[in-house]
Design a protein around this nucleic acid. Structure first.
Length: 702
DNA sequence: TTAGGGTTAG
């Protein structure tokens, strides 16, 4: 029985309990056809390979054969006797061992492992269980594969025979350090496994995204114990979230209620996360409302849920509620709020969160600081971004990517490339996002040769296969150089089926270079892939117009009308004094309307001295006569005028737009930035446009 | 008995 939790706000849990079919339901779920197609869809979408292979891997018939306990080795051989004798002569090592334990207890893991070196080098020490436990803690604390190998090999060579507790700790040590293959061997060879062992290995599998194997082990665990606790359920809910399988998540929710752990905080948080990741924010909110005690993680999960669905305002409002409820905020909260501020282009708010981050003692947190770097660099405040970046005590690839992308988005292509090279010099490993950022920077700044070199170095030097987006960047780069044939050859030579992004890049290149034939070809490819996407038709329409082919343009227009494709209203918004102001074209609802319109008129008058001529007619098909008259008052211009009236000189204006900026406004804003000596950053549906000193970071190519 | 679980950044 499929149930929607949102429907149960009145009678709720009873019905959920009645729907309980666990665990047989999970077997059914994995065997039924609709769910199989569900997987196919998801795996196609995530490009995780052939879904059929994944399903084959998850064969319930091939159960894991429980290992028999290993027979204890007979001690008849000479060498064994020797070993036994040696164990008798082990040196007491109370001093070193207790020191290791103390250091590990104080989280001084590195020092504990340094001291462990003495045991390794000199050998023959009598090391007790508590010392091994401390060493395991040190390995987990450092997350070091090398340390795990050292400690594990010492345990084996020293003849350590772990009890159930220590076996689980050893298993956990491998799991936490991401050594899942070794962890699996440890698990398989354990003479006895209890619930903790199963939970540990299953959680590890979920952590690395091997959800099918996690489910397989979960069912085997169920066969062995016919029992599971809140921890197992929370983990399996996480696995359902990973697979985006709400039906399985609901069954687990039912199971949790049945087992009396439906209100467990870990289960509740996992449910909030699962429902939001599976697309049902209503159910996530319901699960949150049902939490008897709303913890920091609970609040974080629901805020993350709203943010995931693009409901930034709602997420912020939940954050205010969280703050007012007196629950402690943590580095997760701050990281999310910075990201949400970034979407809302709210510098003031981000500054406050930045201050709060430091005040609450999370000033060194890598995730929150990376979010800050991303925020500042996204909005053209490169100095601030660099300031945060330079003061980060440790940085990872994501931190570097954020700054490189920021440089690139704002037209500092050379600086982005320099930063990328510095990253390589500092032995930080780039990933596919790094290359996307640096190639996109090259493309915005027209660094053709450098971009081409970097593109080639991806697979040659860094063993990273270029993906469709990298190809799209290169097509853009070639298009800027007018090398359309080469761009087309790159698409045809790609080792995979060209994607819509790639054809769209070629279509844009054809429009900019006015190549009708290639444009038509790319547009036709795009229609086949995205028949309902309006922008594809609009670009072709523009190409026909530019080439004077009015008959063909009219035919595209007819197709649009036949398909009933209409544009969503274009809107731009800007935040001033922590308040968002949204504008539509010709919008007269704002309280400062008169002032704003006067400002637009005076700006247009001013920039006309610099050669600006407003376009009389837009090429967009859905703009009616009335709207054509108000072209002068497009949402972008209204937002810019409002920003200029209400903000201090010196600070850049930050405007967000739900569509691509139009050609006319692009020209106008470029000149407005010049005459008013203000920086204006517009994030449209496609990219950032940083207007400064009469030019734009996109190099007029978009 | 100990041990195992939930949320964040490009």
């Amino acid at each position: 029985m499929e149930i929607s939790l949102a429907c149960y706000q009145s009678l709720s849990l009873d019905k959920i309990q009645n729907s309980f079919r666990f665990p047989s339901s999970i077997h059914e779920v994995f065997r039924t056809k609709p769910l199989f197609s569900d997987y196919c869809f998801r795996f196609n979408r995530r490009k995780c390979g052939n879904p059929c292979d994944k399903i084959k891997c998850f064969s319930l018939e091939q159960g894991l054969q429980p290992r028999r306990p290993k027979p204890k080795p007979s001690r008849n051989t000479d060498s064994d006797l020797k070993e036994t004798e040696e164990t008798h002569v082990k040196r007491p090592s109370v001093g070193i061992c207790s020191q290791i334990e103390k250091l590990a207890f104080c989280n001084r893991y590195r020092e504990a492992l340094e001291l462990f070196e003495i045991l390794e080098l000199e050998g023959g020490f009598d090391v007790g269980l508590s010392t091994y436990d401390a060493l395991v803690s040190a390995c987990i604390g450092l997350g070091s594969v090398r340390a795990v190998k050292r400690v594990f090999s010492y345990m084996i060579s020293n003849g350590f025979e772990p009890d159930q507790y220590m076996s689980n700790r050893v298993l956990l040590m491998h799991v936490k350090c991401g050594m899942m293959v070794d962890a699996r061997s440890v698990f398989d060879e354990m003479p006895e496994r209890n619930l903790v062992s199963w939970n540990t290995i299953i959680a590890g599998l979920v952590d690395v995204g091997d959800y099918f194997e996690a489910f397989r082990l979960f069912l085997l665990m169920w066969e062995e114990f016919s029992d599971c606790g809140s921890r197992t359920i929370a983990t399996m809910i996480r696995a359902s979230a990973g697979l985006e399988l709400i039906s399985v998540g609901r069954q687990l929710h039912s199971a949790a209620v049945k087992f009396g752990v439906g209100e467990d905080i870990f289960v509740s948080c996992a449910l909030i996360d699962m429902y939001s990741k599976c697309g049902s924010i209503e159910d996530a909110q319901w699960a949150f409302d049902e939490m008897p005690e709303k913890t920091t993680v609970g609040w974080n999960s629901i805020i993350a849920g709203y943010a995931l669905h693009g409901y930034s305002e709602e997420a912020l409002s939940m954050f205010y509620e969280m703050r007012d409820s007196g629950v402690k905020m943590d580095h997760f909260t701050f990281s999310m709020i910075i990201r949400i501020s970034s979407r809302l282009a709210s510098v003031e708010y981000a500054k406050q969160v930045h201050a709060g981050l430091i005040r609450h003692g999370f000033g060194l947190d890598i995730v929150a600081n990376t979010a800050l770097v991303d925020f500042y660099s996204k909005w053209g405040r490169v100095e601030d971004a660099k300031h945060v970046f330079d003061r980060m005590p440790c940085k990872n690839t994501i931190s570097w990517n954020a700054l490189i992308a920021g440089y690139g988005n704002h037209g500092w292509g050379a600086e982005a490339v320099e930063l990328f090279e510095q990253m390589l010099r500092e032995k930080m490993r780039p990933n596919h996002v790094t290359f996307l950022a640096v190639l996109s920077a090259c493309s915005h700044s027209r660094l053709f040769e450098r971009g081409w070199e970097i593109f080639q170095s991806m697979s040659r030097d860094h063993k990273i296969k270029p993906r469709a987006m990298h190809y799209a960047c290169m097509i853009e780069l070639l298009g800027q150089e007018g090398l359309l044939d080469e761009a087309f050859a790159l698409i045809r030579g790609a080792p995979f089926k060209p994607t819509a992004n790639m054809w769209a890049a070629l279509l844009t290149a054809s429009r900019v270079n006015v190549n009708l034939e290639l444009g038509k070809y790319a547009a036709e490819k795009l229609y086949g892939m995205e028949p309902e996407k309006l922008s594809n038709y609009v670009v072709l329409l523009n190409i026909y117009h530019q080439s004077g082919k009015l008959k063909e343009a009219a035919s595209v227009l007819q197709t649009l009308r036949r398909k009933g494709l209409r544009m969503l209203p274009v809107c731009s918004w800007i935040e001033v004094n922590k308040q968002s102001h949204v504008f539509l074209s010709g919008d007269k609802s704002h309280v400062q309307t008169n002032e704003i319109y006067e400002k637009v008129d005076s700006l247009v008058h001013e920039i006309s001295k610099h050669g600006y001529v407003p376009k009389e007619k837009t090429l967009l098909p859905d703009v009616d006569e009335q709207e054509q008259r108000i072209l002068l008052y497009h949402s972008e211009k209204l937002a810019v005028a409002f920003g200029l009236i209400n903000t201090m000189k010196g600070s850049p204006l930050q405007i967000v737009q739900n569509h691509r900026i139009c050609n006319d406004c692009h020209n106008a804003i470029k000149l407005i930035a010049l005459v008013t000596r203000r920086e204006i950053v517009v994030r449209d549906a496609s990219r950032f446009h940083h207007f400064k000193d009469g030019s734009c970071s996109c190099g007029d190519y978009w």
